[in-house]
């Protein structure tokens, strides 16, 4: 697991109120099916913005952006967050 993905999972653990640690989920597991609520998604959004010093544009403020670790990673990459090579 890359540092980048670890950072995403850390944010999910601290702000996603998931019943189990995000480290037990695969990249493509549906976070909503695993307990991520709409309110917690907002917390995750704010925490990701703080952690990566970005702001999600309105076009990315939708459910699918936070659907999985992969979806979050792709959204961050689309905002220019650089992924360090593994």
């Amino acid at each position: 697991m890359s540092d980048f993905d670890q950072s995403i999972r850390k944010v999910l653990d601290e702000h996603g109120r998931l019943p189990e640690s995000a480290s037990t989920l695969s990249d493509n597991d549906d976070l909503y099916d695993n307990g991520l609520s709409s309110h917690a998604s907002v917390n995750v959004m704010l925490a990701l913005e703080d952690a990566f010093d970005i702001e999600f544009p309105d076009s990315l403020l939708r459910k699918s952006t936070f659907q999985s670790v992969t979806a979050i990673r792709e959204a961050l990459q689309s905002l220019g967050v650089v992924v360090a090579p593994e």
């Binding site: 709409s38 309110h39 998604s41 907002v42 959004m45 704010l46 999600f56 309105d58 403020l61 939708r62 459910k63 936070f66």
Partner: peptide, 18 residues
């Protein structure tokens, strides 16, 4: 923005107008 984001995460048809 928090309110809008919450609504957009709850409703697929919601359009944010900043």
């Amino acid at each position: 923005r928090e309110l809008s984001a919450l609504e957009a995460l709850r409703r697929e048809d919601f359009q944010i107008d900043q």
